[in-house]
């Protein structure tokens, strides 16, 4: 089962990036084997609509779920349309977050948990 996690770095010891649309990297992790690939987020510097664009990019990777800190309204709408589950409130390292996800300790979110453009304020 593949999940996409927003990451500040390129390996499993990196911290979860709290932003979705403007995260630095995505780690596409196989939750069972812990094998992963790194996607650099080209939309991090988009002038607008970063969440929408990032959500489309992620949808193409075929992940079942996205794990991140926060997600805004447009990104959430796009991910939902693509049938991808969204788990917010993740923090700590990527490895820890995958473990929490597997144990069911992360909560699936039913709605965006931050407003538009919140990733621009960081």
């Amino acid at each position: 089962m593949k999940i996409g996690i927003t990451s500040t770095g390129e390996n499993l010891d990196a911290d979860v990036d709290q932003r979705f649309g403007r995260c630095k990297y995505f780690l596409i992790v196989d939750a069972d084997s812990m094998e992963f690939e790194v996607l650099s987020n080209e939309n991090a510097m988009a002038s607008g609509g970063a969440g929408i664009q990032t959500a489309q990019t992620i949808a193409k990777t075929g992940v079942e779920a996205v794990v991140t800190g926060n997600v805004g309204p447009n990104a959430f709408q796009t991910l939902s349309a693509a049938g991808i589950k969204v788990f917010t409130g993740a923090s700590g390292t990527i490895k820890e977050s995958v473990e929490k996800y597997k144990k069911g300790e992360l909560k699936e979110t039913e709605a965006p948990n931050v407003g538009s453009h919140s990733g621009m304020r960081r």
Binding site: G49, A50, A55, T78
Partner: peptide, 25 residues
């Protein structure tokens, strides 16, 4: 997905079997 690739303002999103339009963008 060609419409979404073209849009400089990310006002369109195409995911499998759905197209979303974001009017304000």
């Amino acid at each position: 997905g060609k419409c979404s690739e073209f849009c400089a303002y990310n006002a369109l999103a195409v995911v499998p079997s759905k197209v979303l339009v974001f009017p304000e963008l």
